[in-house]
Write a protein that binds this DNA or RNA. Sequence first.
DNA 1: TGTTACAATACCAAAAAAATACCATTTACC
DNA 2: GGTAAATGGTATTTTTTTGGTATTGTAACA
Lengths: 254, 254
Amino acid sequence: MTDDLATILSPERLQAGGTGPLYVKLRRTLEDAMRTGALGHGDALPPERDIAEFAAVSRVTVRKAIDDLVADGLLVRRHGSGTFVAKPVSKVEQRLSQLTSFTEDMARRGMTARSEWLHKGIHTPSPDEMMILGLATDIKVSRLSRLRIADDQPLAIEHASVSGEFLPDPSVVTTSLYAELERRGVRPVRAVQRISATNMKEADAHLLGVPVGAAGLSIERISYVGSGRAIEFTRSLYRGDAYDFVAELTIGAS
Amino acid sequence: MTDDLATILSPERLQAGGTGPLYVKLRRTLEDAMRTGALGHGDALPPERDIAEFAAVSRVTVRKAIDDLVADGLLVRRHGSGTFVAKPVSKVEQRLSQLTSFTEDMARRGMTARSEWLHKGIHTPSPDEMMILGLATDIKVSRLSRLRIADDQPLAIEHASVSGEFLPDPSVVTTSLYAELERRGVRPVRAVQRISATNMKEADAHLLGVPVGAAGLSIERISYVGSGRAIEFTRSLYRGDAYDFVAELTIGAS
DNA sequence: TGTTACAATACCAAAAAAATACCATTTACC
DNA sequence: GGTAAATGGTATTTTTTTGGTATTGTAACA
């Protein structure tokens, strides 16, 4: 078990922590707290004034201990906010899978993107939508369909469904659905995608300007907010000859 | 028993609710009220002004607490109408993105998997392989091709290329390529996949037992070890009518 | 006796938290 | 249908918290 920080930083503990000046003992104590996990990545240290009180030393002494740890990159200071345990950022890992918008995605590929709305409306939910979004029977669902176009070529058809609780009026969405949800204070933090290949039916093939039966990349995405609740369900159909989907995976801790 | 909301939100209760800023205490209190059932699904919260009065804090503080709960999808706001408790939280799988083997993947879907080797050999690298695996000109490459079969139905064709440095003799691989690499102390920690749809050519279609032109899911994967070096390059072609690929994404910190 | 490392005091500046005042939309009632 | 009350939405300001810095004192040491 790990003690409370106030205990770890008590004057008695500090004195037991070897020899040398006060601020060195304090620094060692803080290092140990990080090594043992009493202070985890991203955690905030107590305010300098509190640490000074816990350890019964002056604040300058505390600062000097922290100075060293900041210089070593173990801590990060933010004026007016606090001091935080730095995250061990391996530069490669930083590029985690990210939920990018179509527009961003196309921009990265050097293409200009635009959309044509096929439909915006509010409906009684389908069984699929009720299941996935966890809707009560009296809740309506907003549906938005559009044709995604890159460099003047139709590239994908996209159908989005959002619970009416979070988006009562789909007509307010002009460009980005995510931006509109964000504006309403709803932030998805996680998404699961199901990707498959299919031969296109006539209606979809016609919209995308490809022969019937051409290969299409079907992507179904469910987005979740922090609490774990699903808030958006999107089905997209991309032209197989013009789009590929890139995903980065990391191996989970075994 | 559940107290009245005005009681639950009283200043005394709030102070007892742990440490931190006021709006955090208030948020925790509201979360508890929902967990214990004092606030049920679809219930309306008291008006913000009332909550502010109950808790003896300003209305902005109340709003800040509610903001967080809205972002998490626990509450829903309706301008001019009120704030309401959202629907039940669907307990979603906590599964992270993972580099799973074909066998594990099939097992999870309740299918029995096996393979038939099409080819194992050591070759002079192609330009693609040299580029991707970062091979010197005098290094050979091991190639392994197999037919993936699930429940006695051919499901995918898989071509793997590994630098001869890491796998000098491909014939030692019997079931899992990853297991063999692991045995040699090589452990990939990261992979990037490129997924696209294609209409099948005759040779592949024949192997998989589908008509020529049927939709196929093409997955190209490059695996990297901790140092960032690419060690494996795999191209797979799945039957579009029988397989879908599931990926989980997380939104990076902005 | 001066130099240097250590520690304490007092004050400065940036950020977050909280309060105040006012705006916009919905609902209900007439 | 119109209008007022109720409710959430937003901008601005004030207060509090938090790290940043300059100054001073003290004791060890050359």
